[in-house]
């Protein structure tokens, strides 16, 4: 039960994540992808006569059910172990993040940023709202996210997924090393 109580090392979790690709194909000829669920949600609830959302979203209910499952999976981990332990990140990262004003290193995410009460503060809008908009806009513009491109697409040796993944990393590096230090 050791495995179920503590966090998993990369060599357990990584291969299991990779297994999702053949499993979804085998079970129902489906390609791993998460961000497209956001499009299906728009098509179902707020299509507003926009051509991009004018399709039969009911053909993709499996994808909406799949992401619901992801949430359920996150919940199930709570039943077998606490989630408020400090993540074992490197000392170098801890000292870098202290410079950005992070002081609480317990839990999966810094509660001092990702907290509903931070919505009264401009940094809350930056981290939760602006960050979220970039994710939704960018993944649809690139036609995929880390699941659909980096895991599924690269597993299929697709050039477009390599370009997208390089883009993800350049964007992430620019935010981490240039923009975040300028703002905070």
């Amino acid at each position: 039960m050791e495995l179920f109580n503590g966090p998993w090392p990369w060599y357990i979790g990584g291969p299991l994540i990779g297994l999702m690709v053949p499993l979804l194909l085998y079970v129902g000829n489906k390609q791993l992808g998460v961000s497209s669920s956001l499009r299906h949600f728009c098509a179902a609830c707020i299509p507003a006569k926009i051509p991009f959302f004018d399709y039969n979203w009911k053909d993709y209910v499996w994808n909406l059910v799949f992401v619901l499952g992801i949430g359920l999976g996150g919940y199930l981990t709570l039943l077998i172990g606490p989630n408020d332990y400090a993540i074992g990140i490197s000392e170098a990262t801890i000292s870098d993040l202290r410079l950005l004003g992070i002081s609480d290193f317990s839990g999966m995410v810094p509660d001092q940023i990702f907290n509903i009460s931070m919505m009264s503060n401009s940094s809350g809008w930056f981290f939760m709202v602006f960050g979220g908009i970039l994710i939704g806009f960018g993944t649809r513009y690139a036609d995929g996210c880390t699941s659909g491109h980096t895991i599924m697409g690269l597993s299929n040796l697709q050039l477009s997924s390599l370009v997208a993944t390089i883009g993800f990393f350049i964007g992430g590096l620019a935010m981490t090393h240039i923009i975040l230090p300028l703002i905070f």
């Binding site: 992401v67 949430g71 981290f127 970039l134 993944t139 690139a142 964007g171």
Partner: peptide, 28 residues
């Protein structure tokens, strides 16, 4: 693919979450 990839990358580093983890975090 490239422009959207860059934009998503910016958001990934801000929120620390790609779409899959967003759902897992809410459940968590």
């Amino acid at each position: 693919t490239a422009i959207g990839g860059l934009i998503f990358g910016l958001g990934w580093a801000i929120t620390g979450a790609c779409p899959g983890p967003i759902f897992a975090l809410i459940g968590n």
